[in-house]
Amino acid sequence: MTDKDKCIVEPFTPWQETTKGGVVTSSGNAHYYETGGWRADKPEWDTEKCRQCLMCFPVCPDSSILTEDKKMIGIDYDHCKGCGVCANVCPFHAINMVKA
């Protein structure tokens, strides 16, 4: 069950197999923990209205505005908690919160 490369130790792993002192040796492995299930409202990206200003990108607490080559390319629904901050700052109403 335990993924050693990602240092994902399953709950209730025998003490002999946990990491000493609780050290975690795979940085950023929280990426494998999904918080998308926290979402009540879901942001929907309207590519027609989006003018690629990227104002939504820095305001996301969950690093869930996906970008590439200075452009927004989508939303990381595995981690987005649906707070709506991105939708609120969008000057072009290109992100809309809908019921999940």
Partner: peptide, 16 residues
């Protein structure tokens, strides 16, 4: 440098 998957409240200012 800070990935998603952390467990701050939805809409928290601190991770921003």
């Amino acid at each position: 440098r800070l990935t998603g998957g952390h467990r701050m409240c939805a809409g928290c200012g601190a991770p921003v």
